[in-house]
């Protein structure tokens, strides 16, 4: 299973980024062999609109089936749901802390968007 974490860095020690669509990047952790890769999200950060949709495409392309982030808007939620990505929210400070909470089963799944869309 691969879990995408939203982050402003590219290591497990890096701080979590509370945003999804316009997060600086993702750390995608593979629980099967305890390895991870950093994925740049600059393309979505700079897009005029539809950042959450494009970010969903990016993490799906890298095989993620779970997302751990701070918040998620309505378009991203629709896209993630259609792509079969389970969404978990956390206020953990770093990727490592978020991973620990995820592994302990302490994170709640998101059932609907928790912030407004940003396009308007």
């Amino acid at each position: 299973m691969k879990i995408a974490f939203t982050t402003s860095g590219n290591t497990l020690d890096a701080p979590m980024d509370g945003r999804f669509g316009r997060a600086a990047g993702f750390v995608i952790y593979d629980t099967d062999n305890d390895t991870f890769e950093a994925v740049d999200n600059r393309q979505s950060v700079n897009t005029a609109q539809g950042a959450g949709i494009q970010a969903t495409e990016a993490i799906v392309r890298h095989g993620a089936n779970c997302l751990v982030t701070g918040h998620c808007g309505p378009n991203a939620f629709r896209a993630l749901s259609a792509a079969g990505v389970r969404i978990y929210t956390t206020s953990a400070a770093t990727v490592a802390e978020a991973l620990e909470a995820f592994s302990a089963g302490a994170l709640a799944t998101m059932k609907s968007a928790d912030v407004e869309g940003h396009w308007s």
């Binding site: 005029a48 539809g50 799906v60 896209a79 259609a82 792509a83």
Partner: peptide, 14 residues
């Protein structure tokens, strides 16, 4: 504009 997107199924329209 990411107004239409497909994840291996019929596309979603925004």
């Amino acid at each position: 504009y990411h107004a239409i997107v497909s994840f291996g199924s019929s596309p979603l329209v925004f």
